[in-house]
Each structure stands twice: as structure tokens, then as C-alpha cells.
Amino acid sequence: MRYLKKLLGAFALATAASMAGATPEHPQNNVDYLTLPQAQDTDSGDKVEVIEFFAYYCPHCNVLEPRLAAWVKKQGDNIVFKRVHVPRDENVLPQQRLFYTLEALGLLEQYHAKVFAAMHEQRLRLNRDEQVFDWAQQNGIDREKFVNAYRSFGVQARVRRAGYMMQNYRVNYWPVVVVGGKYLTSPSQVGENMRGEPTEAEQQEAALKVMDYLVQKSKPAAPAAAK
């Protein structure tokens, strides 16, 4: 019995020490981030691919957006940044198709934040096709051009691919960020192991630091100098 108590005590101390070392400045695998059992192919060349899995209706995605946008800008040429709007049900499908239509038309960066504002500030549900078309027109987008793209095979293919990517990257909640086709992290993942009761803003800032680390970790190795 005394041996068992010693063993349990040693395990508790080891666990505590491990958790104490897990900080955004010194991230640990399976604590601050997860590693996919099978890395996914990337097409980002000598830059690091970073993918955000998100949804327009998600309040946490909405709050993260400005911080994430600033982080992407700060990373500059270090990364290739992509977004994947996750599927859920028929109410979310119009929002998902809205995202991929904006992307197909080259309008995403101009209107991405405006969609979040429409849903979370103006309280538009954007859960019907006609409501999405009205929103696009009211925001200065040619309605016919938008509708044609929205209903195109290309946008339908992007919607289907989002579902496949969720499976391949093992994404089951959002927002989640994947770095280098291999490492997954999120504010909630990092926040689970922060001391005290961190605010959502603190969790987000900590997650961005973990993402900094993962970008560095994922950079291609420099070619060896010729002898």
C-alpha cells in the first residue's frame, strides 16, 4: 500500500511538472497542439501552409477573426494562408456556399469580415439562398454574377471538398488551425492547459504564440551547402 501511494505521488508530480512546462512559449505536443498520425500533402512550396477551419455562424470564429487576420499579415511571406468553411446542416449550407462563392469571385478578402458582421452584429441568419443573394446585392456585388457562381459546379465541388478535408484533418470542432499539414491547435486546445481561468482573448493570444512556434517547426530544412 505504501508503495502504491509513492507510485501515485510520483505520477502526480511528473504530470504537474509536464503541465507546468507546457506554455505558449514552450508548446508541447498533445498539450498545446496535436500531431496528425498521417501528415497531409501541401502545395505551398517553400512556405508553410496554414489552414483555418471555421464557420460564419460560430461566435468564437467571429471573435478570433481580427486577431487571426493580424497574425496572418504579420507572418507575411512565411506562410500560405487558407480557410475552410466547415459544413453542418441545411441551415449552414447557404453560408458555406456564400464563402466559396466569394472565394471563387476573388472577393473574399474584401467581404469576409462583412459576412461576420452581418451575422453577429446585424443578426442576419443568412440561412436561405435568397437572403444570401439579397445580402450580396445590397453590398455592391452584381446579383446575377454572384448567383451564377453560387450555383456553379465549381462552388459545389469546393463545398464537397470541405467535408473531405474535415475528415482527413480530423476536425470535429472549430475554429481549428492546421499548420504544415500536420499540426493542429486552437484557442480552446491551448486554453485547457493554461493556469487559472483565462479569458477567450487570452486563449486566442496564447494560441497565436503556439502557431508562431508551429510555423517555425514546419519550415522546410535549408539545403545542405555543397562541399
Rank of each mutant, 00 (worst) to 15 (best):
Y213P: 05
D129V: 13
N127A: 12
Y57L: 11
F81I: 06
R158N: 13
E202I: 05
Q96W: 09
F99E: 03
G180R: 01
Y56H: 02
A22W: 05
Y164K: 14
Y100I: 10
Y100N: 00
N62P: 00
E144M: 07
D129W: 08
L7E: 15
M194W: 06
V86M: 14
W135K: 02
N172L: 02
A39K: 08
V210K: 07
D43R: 09
V48I: 06
L107M: 14
V179D: 03
S218W: 04
Y150L: 13
I51R: 09
M1G: 15
Y3L: 12
D89K: 07
A104N: 01
Y111K: 04
S188L: 04
Q75W: 10
L4H: 09
A224K: 11
P94Q: 01
E200L: 09
N168Y: 10
R88D: 12
Q95D: 06
K217V: 02
G45Q: 07
L98M: 14
E103K: 10
R170T: 10
E25N: 11
V72D: 00
C58P: 10
L102P: 00
E25A: 15
L13K: 11
A222F: 14
L68H: 13
Q167N: 08
M166T: 04
K6Q: 15
T35F: 10
F53I: 03
V63E: 13
M166P: 00
N193D: 03
R128G: 10
Q167D: 06
K227F: 14
V147G: 00
R128P: 07
G163H: 05
W135N: 03
D43H: 14
Q95R: 12
E144W: 04
N127S: 12
P27N: 05
Q131S: 15
K182F: 06
N30A: 05
D142V: 04
P223A: 11
Q38C: 00
V80N: 05
I79E: 07
K74C: 03
V63A: 15
L102Y: 03
E90H: 13
S188W: 02
P94H: 00
N127G: 09
G140V: 04
V159K: 01
D129R: 13
R125I: 03
N29G: 02
Y183A: 02
P198T: 07
Y183N: 05
E90R: 12
H60V: 02
D142A: 11
Q75N: 13
S44P: 03
M165W: 09
A55L: 05
I141P: 00
S152Y: 07
Y213F: 15
D43N: 14
V72N: 01
I141Q: 02
Q96R: 10
G9I: 06
V86W: 13
